[in-house]
């Protein structure tokens, strides 16, 4: 059996340098803005897997310190990383990415990739008193029709209360306060639901309430973020999910390790057996960096701009079409 210590343990060097690397994150305004935009989801929590958002890294050399990094990015910024760094240039580090992104890994990077899937150890759909709904108000990340469908699916459920954790505004306006626009949106969308319904911030919910809650996370495409603080926090405090979309069983990969990330859920790490056929042209997009969206490779992309998000989404769609 292979020695997996490099994967299962965090070496002293890694522990020492990891803090340094995450605190030397990119200082580009656009990166800081994007970090604020998804703040409630991108907040750091400890994991021995060296979890990181790649969009915060300006120089891939800083990844060389680590045997492995657990990539929390959604497709938007993972794609950006591969566009900025088409080749690993000798980097030995293994990037552990969400297995649902396997079709977006460029060929030169395939040797560096491991996959992760989530596994929930409790009983999914175990009925509790309160329902927590987490969604990010971004039409590309969480399209209205997906939200409406999700809300319709719970309209006949019996809960004492529904607490809605709506994110999507700059962090300064949502840490402690509920944005009134969001509230009215939530109120409107909740019209079909007869259960008392209110919008709350995460720090307003007592952990005991979380333990007595089900939660519904609406994150259909893992577009802006994949590994999410909000989901981790709810699971860590004992909430039970009612949807299993975020749990993906990948039969095309060989499981090599399972790491508990809370008392109730874990991540399974696997080695890819094969990658889907690539539409290579998709990653030969040097023109991308000449476009108006990204002036040059060394300058930052406005990750919050709809133009860039739509660009990545169109790539996703064209890729999906080419692989059908």
């Amino acid at each position: 059996m292979n020695d997996l210590t490099w994967l299962t343990e965090q070496s002293k060097d890694e522990i020492y340098t990891f803090n340094d690397v995450i605190h030397r994150a990119s200082s580009y305004d656009s990166v800081i803005n994007f970090q604020g935009y998804i703040y409630q989801h991108s907040r750091y929590f400890f994991s021995p897997l060296n979890q990181i958002y790649l969009y915060l890294i300006d120089d891939i050399a800083s990844l060389a310190f680590f045997n492995k990094v657990f990539v929390r990015d959604g497709l938007l910024t993972l794609k950006l990383f591969f566009l900025r760094h088409p080749y690993p240039n000798g980097l030995q580090t293994k990037l552990i990415i969400n297995s649902r992104f396997k079709k977006f890994v460029p060929r030169p990077w395939q040797e560096n990739i491991l996959f992760y899937n989530y596994k929930f150890d409790g009983q999914i759909k175990e009925k509790k008193k309160t329902l927590l709904i987490a969604y990010h108000l971004d039409s590309l990340h969480c399209p209205d029709e997906v939200l409406d469908k999700a809300l319709n699916s719970i309209s006949n459920e019996s809960y004492d209360e529904i607490l809605c954790l709506v994110t999507g505004m700059p962090k300064t306006s949502t840490i402690d306060f509920v944005n009134k626009n969001i509230f009215s949106k939530a109120t409107i969308t909740a019209k079909n639901i007869k259960i008392p319904f209110r919008t709350v911030a995460l720090n307003e919910i007592n952990p005991r309430v979380i333990a007595n809650s089900n939660f519904l996370e609406i994150n259909p495409y893992h577009f802006l973020f994949s590994d999410c603080f909000l989901r981790w926090f709810l699971l860590y405090n004992g909430a039970t999910p009612i949807n299993d979309e975020w749990l993906l069983n990948d039969n095309d990969a060989k499981k090599i390790h399972e790491a508990m990330v809370s008392p109730f859920h874990s991540v399974e790490i696997s080695e890819p057996k094969k990658f889907p056929l690539m539409h290579d042209q998709m990653f030969d997009e040097m023109d991308f960096f000449k476009s108006e969206i990204v002036p040059s490779r060394n300058q930052s992309v406005n990750l919050c701009s709809d133009t860039y998000k739509r660009y990545v989404q169109s790539l996703v769609h064209s890729h999906a079409k080419n692989n059908q």
Binding site: R43, Y44, F45, F46, S47, P48, P207, A211, F229, W232, F233, Y236, N237, G238, M260, V261, S262, P263
Partner: peptide, 26 residues
Amino acid sequence: GPFDDLCIPYKGFENPPGVYFQRWMK
């Protein structure tokens, strides 16, 4: 009981969320 990552705030020592659980796992 719940895992709590409160470190030693009186000395200014803080831990990120999840640390104490991972120490237990180890």
